[in-house]
Amino acid sequence: MASLVWLLIPLFAAIGAGIWGSWAARDRTQGDISELAGYARFREAMGNAEQAKAKAQAHSGSDAV
């Protein structure tokens, strides 16, 4: 009986390895798509902020002349 218990250890290890392997190989592209869309919105917002800053500097420079 004790030998059967020792044989269960590799069986559980193999089952655990199979579960971990399937989890590690899962498809993660959906998360990347939303992250890339968020990054594109961030870049657009930063570009708009830089344009507004440049306009404000140009405007304040024209008042000083």
Rank of each mutant, 00 (worst) to 15 (best):
M1I: 12
M1Y: 08
M1W: 07
S3N: 10
L4G: 06
L4Q: 08
V5L: 13
W6N: 10
W6K: 12
L7H: 12
L7C: 11
L8R: 08
L8V: 09
I9N: 02
L11E: 07
F12E: 08
F12P: 11
F12R: 11
F12T: 10
A13P: 01
A14S: 04
A14E: 00
A14L: 03
A14Y: 03
A17W: 01
G18E: 01
G18W: 02
I19F: 08
I19A: 08
I19C: 01
W20T: 01
W20H: 02
G21H: 15
G21V: 05
G21S: 12
S22M: 14
A24L: 05
A25S: 09
A25F: 03
A25T: 05
D27N: 00
R28H: 02
T29L: 02
Q30A: 12
Q30W: 06
G31T: 06
D32W: 12
D32T: 14
E35C: 00
E35Y: 13
L36D: 07
L36P: 00
L36F: 03
Y39N: 04
Y39D: 07
A40E: 07
R41F: 08
R41D: 14
R41S: 10
F42C: 01
F42K: 02
A45K: 09
M46R: 13
M46K: 10
N48W: 00
A49M: 14
E50W: 07
A52I: 08
A54Q: 13
A56Y: 15
A56V: 11
A58I: 14
H59C: 13
H59Q: 15
G61S: 15
S62N: 13
V65C: 09
V65W: 13
